[in-house]
Every structure is written in structure tokens, then in C-alpha cells.
């Protein structure tokens, strides 16, 4: 849409109010959450001071920040380990999820036969499955990857399957009329049509793979030796090192937010020209 030069227009009061409202909303969307966040941190700090809470129970925000700086070497190398597991498992979730969805799309029979297994895998808590994985798999990284993958692949699988199956009937007929092969129908019709669904699943899977990586390490941390952020949290918990615990927690949240933002951006860039979800609302 072309931008309208508002000053050049003589707006009636109703329209002027709407423009003002929109501008306020635009600013408020950023300013409000930030203000609340700052307020919350300030309140946290005050509560620590007013109640004279010791550092090993609830550290003041500034202490957490300085811990983040002082323990940077330790924390960031741990973050790197967690990130590696997260991204590898997300990658495997994409490959596995899309691959299985394409396989399911080949025939209703395949989908009917195997989809329930995917659901079983999804609804069983990973924490309960882990001891088994622990018995059967030796390599620590493989264990964690497997765990994170089980948690993350399902939204991609189910969303992509839904997308591959929700192609407009007329478009399907059009391909049939033009003598399209199965492969052509997949390549030129079903995969692109599934793209918005896949990207929606990817956004969920991004967060889940981080959760999967952390949870897996937590469970594994009780038994073996690992070096990700979860181990740092367990360790800090044993030592009553609350500042480091908070610092590690902060890094995990930040990572989760960044993953979500990056995946949202990718999704927006791919869909912005054609898909309704990526369009700015127009009245």
C-alpha cells in the first residue's frame, strides 16, 4: 500500500482520531511491555532490599547482571553446548518432520497406519522415556539429540501433514487435467501450499527443541556428565549459587525469545507476498 501523507490531507475528526489511535497503538506495543518489565525488575530489587533477602535465596538484579559478566566464560561455553543441541535437533526435526509428512502424503493408508505412533511418541512425557534412551544409547550428544528431537518433530510433522492435505480441490483437478505426475503435484502444488503450515509448526518446534535440549540435559545430568546450561543450573542449585542460577535462566529465556523472533522473521519474509497471515491488517 502506498503511504498516505497525513499532513497533506484535511482529516475529519473521526479519521484524525483513528490515525492518532493507530499511532498510539504502534508505540504502545513496544513501550508498554518494556515499561512493565522495568517496573517488575525495580520491584524485584526493592523487595530484596526491603525484606533484606540474602543473596543465596534471591539475588538483586544487579548481582545477576554482574554474575553474567563475571562468569561469562563458564556460562557462554555452556550456552554454546545447549545451542548446538537445540539447533541440531531442530534441524533433525525439520528433516524428520517434513520427510515423514511427505511420506504420509503419498497415501492415506500410510498416514492412517503410522500417524498414531507419532501421537504416542508425542503424548508420552520425554522425562519418562529418557531412562530407556539412557540404557540403549551410549553417546551423550546422541542421547540429548534424540530427546530434543522427539519433543520437537511432532508440530512440524502434524502441521506439514495438514498443509499437504489441505490443497484446494479445484487446484488438484487443474493439475490432474494437465497430466501432472505425483512428483510434480508434490513439488509445484502440495509443498508450496503446505509452507504456511510448516512455518507455523517450525515456530513451535523452535521453542520446543530448546525445551527438549534443556530437559534432556536435566535428566541426563542426574546420571552423567554434561556441560550445557542445564548442568550449570543443577550445579548452581547444589551450591546455593542463586546469582549464577538466575544468570543461566536469563540466558535460556533470551535464547528462546531470539529463536522465536528469528523464526517469525523467516516466516514473514517467505510469506509476506502471498499469505493472509503475513499481511498487515487493512480496513
Amino acid at each position: 500500500m502506498t503511504a498516505i501523507d497525513e499532513r497533506a490531507l484535511k482529516l475529519d475528526p473521526e479519521e484524525a482520531r483513528r490515525v492518532r489511535q493507530e499511532r498510539l497503538e504502534r508505540i504502545g506495543r513496544w513501550v508498554l511491555p518494556l515499561a512493565i518489565m522495568i517496573l517488575a525488575i525495580w520491584l524485584w530489587d526493592r523487595i530484596c532490599v526491603w525484606n533484606a533477602i540474602p543473596q543465596y535465596i534471591l539475588p538483586r538484579p544487579a548481582v545477576v547482571l554482574s554474575t553474567l559478566y563475571n562468569d561469562a566464560g563458564l556460562l557462554f561455553s555452556a550456552l554454546l553446548v545447549t545451542l548446538r543441541i537445540t539447533f541440531l535437533s531442530l534441524l533433525l526435526a525439520v528433516v524428520g518432520g517434513v520427510g515423514l509428512a511427505v511420506l504420509f502424503a503419498q497415501s492415506k493408508w500410510v498416514e492412517m497406519s503410522f500417524f498414531p505412533f507419532a501421537i504416542v511418541l508425542q503424548v508420552t512425557p520425554i522425562v519418562a522415556i529418557f531412562p530407556l534412551i539412557n540404557i540403549y544409547v551410549d553417546n551423550q550428544t546422541t542421547k540429548l539429540l534424540l530427546c530434543a528431537w522427539i519433543v520437537a518433530f511432532f508440530p512440524i510433522l502434524s502441521n506439514t501433514t495438514l498443509g499437504l492435505n489441505s490443497v484446494d480441490r479445484n487446484l488438484r483437478d487443474m493439475f490432474k487435467l494437465n497430466g501432472a505426475t505425483r512428483w510434480q503435484q508434490l513439488r509445484y502444488l502440495r509443498l508450496p501450499a503446505a509452507m504456511p503450515y510448516f512455518l507455523g509448526g517450525l515456530k513451535i518446534a523452535g521453542g520446543l527443541s530448546l525445551i527438549g535440549a534443556v530437559v534432556a540435559e536435566f535428566v541426563a545430568g542426574a546420571t552423567g556428565q554434561s556441560s550445557g546450561l542445564a548442568s550449570r543450573i543443577i550445579e548452581a542449585g547444589y551450591r546455593l549459587n542463586a546469582p549464577r542460577l538466575f544468570a543461566a535462566l536469563f540466558l535460556i529465556s533470551l535464547t528462546g525469545i531470539l529463536i522465536f523472533l528469528v523464526l517469525s522473521l523467516i516466516s514473514h519474509l517467505i510469506l509476506r507476498r502471498w499469505h493472509e497471515s503475513a499481511l498487515k491488517q487493512e480496513r
Partner: peptide
Amino acid sequence: RANIGFVFQEPTLLPWASVFDNVWLPLRLK
């Protein structure tokens, strides 16, 4: 099949493809 063209009640275009690519499609499939 190539001797029949079909126009549906809705335009039934590929929403992600350009006008050129939409018209190219039947030839592309060949």
C-alpha cells in the same frame, strides 16, 4: 488431456506464484 482447458468458478490460481508462473504452469508440467 492437453486438448481441454478448464476454467473454474473461482480463479483457482497458485497464490504464491506470479501471474507469469501461473500461466506457465500447464506448459511447465509438460
